[in-house]
Design a binder for these strands. Structure first.
Lengths: 164, 164
DNA sequence: AAAAACTATGTGCAAATGCATATTCTTTTC
DNA sequence: GAAAAGAATATGCATTTGCACATAGTTTTT
């Protein structure tokens, strides 16, 4: 049947919908915030045990799969203010989890590397991250998961300003 | 063909996957963080113009569609620490955007109501929120949007601890 | 090749945040 | 029905955050 699609606001409809018309429970940003809130809460205790904040944890995660990024790029990947990341990196370096290396071609720039201790810290946390991930996808079959991730990838392409 | 599904970790596979095996760009929490980071950045300027922080904006949004919730429930909806929300509400009340009313049946509890000024503030912000929403879904057709939101709803049901 | 514009990172400072706990009330237990 | 346990909200305090700007270096312009 032709039920109105609450996520399509670009059609022939005249007035834009209100949040009440869409409904909080059908508004994707609301749902994504709620879900990510739980994901973060699931990690909190283990992060605290390692002395990690969210930006520090994200930096370790990205560095575990990306070698030697610039701080600016790491800020994009981790969705962290550059100034906040700068201080998070101070702490991670003090903890011996990361190492800052001056970029050989641009003396303003700094590249970042995980130390073995940093990799160990991330590997300590990873099972918890994976468990939180699996928890959110419980009961959702492989096809639906794949479609969901594919949509997320399109969405990131839509919104990102950087080519990374 | 039978390509391994990087989002399914519950099958016959022995070792749990690493983040490198899944790939950052296929790890849903990473994608969701990146996308929500842009959504929030899109709202930032308009929020600042109204003197709103993220918790204050979320409180207005939820109150615009939910009448008289308890503070504790509003904290769940807005994914905000109760203490943070308490102070956000102080500010919203000082701005004349919300009103705290003692619950008639439980004198510990407080119910919250949007004032007309608060509704106006939210309605000022809403077009920006809707534009950011539409931006992330650009080029994604109605069916895919519906499927995506349906998956999000299942995920929220999976992770939420409260019946709201 | 000097000036201007831009880029990468760090820092001062006020504000926001989160944890632990206080306070006040309600519900359960014995 | 008194005591204990639990719940709703607020607050003290240390930490984190974000904005604005400083600093140092690079690229573009003329």
């Amino acid at each position: 049947m032709d039920r109105p699609d609450p996520t399509n606001h670009g059609g022939a409809r005249q007035a834009p919908p209100t949040l009440a018309e869409i409904g909080l429970a059908a508004y994707a940003p609301y749902l994504m915030n709620r879900i990510m809130g739980r994901y973060n809460a699931d990690l909190r205790e283990d992060m605290a045990a390692l002395g990690l904040t969210t930006p520090k944890m994200r930096a370790l995660a990205v560095l575990s799969v990306t070698d030697g990024p610039l701080i600016r790029d790491l800020a994009v990947y981790t969705v962290t203010e550059q100034s906040t990341l700068s201080r998070a990196l101070d702490q991670l370096a003090a903890d011996g989890f990361v190492q800052r290396e001056p970029d050989p071609d641009d003396s303003r720039a700094t590249r970042l590397y995980l130390t073995p201790a940093g990799r160990t810290a991330f590997e300590t946390l990873w099972p918890t991250m994976l468990a939180a991930h699996d928890h959110m996808f419980r009961g959702i079959d492989a096809g639906e998961r794949r479609a969901f991730v594919a949509t997320l990838q399109k969405m990131l392409k839509n919104v990102r300003r950087h080519e990374i």
